[in-house]
Amino acid sequence: MAKVGLDGHDVGARVVARGLLEAGMEVIYTGIRRTPEQIARIAMEEDVDVVGISILSGAHLALVPKVRSLLDSSVVMVVGGVIPQEDIPELENVGVSRVFLSGTSVAEIAEYIQSAVSFPEESNGSSDGR
């Protein structure tokens, strides 16, 4: 769960992170004011399945594609915030799987993530969900 750019409004990101915790997920929260490079590095070191970007400042078209281009292609990317309708296809074109507008319930986001990520059952020994 990442905040990109200078937008410091992180209530939404926190509420969603907390909600995903309650849905049994492990969430790495990056804190505010991260550069695309920082987010990509965190995503890589933590070997995450999904990157969620929360952005409210209107800078999504400038920043989100940059983050996407730095991420591994296997990583699912979702974006949440205030995104005008006509920008959504543009974000989807660069590889954003789903855009959630402000006010989306946390349950809906959790459900989507669960469906978008495949959990390999190649456990050799007892399994831990990560």
């Binding site: 992170a17 915790l21 309650e22 492990e26 969430v27 790495i28 929260y29 804190g31």
Partner: peptide, 19 residues
């Protein structure tokens, strides 16, 4: 969380010199 098993991992946010 003892209930869901989920977690929010935020320690690295404070590791600004290392990141």
């Amino acid at each position: 969380s003892p209930f869901s098993g989920g977690a929010v991992l935020g320690d690295r946010v404070r590791m600004t010199r290392s990141e």
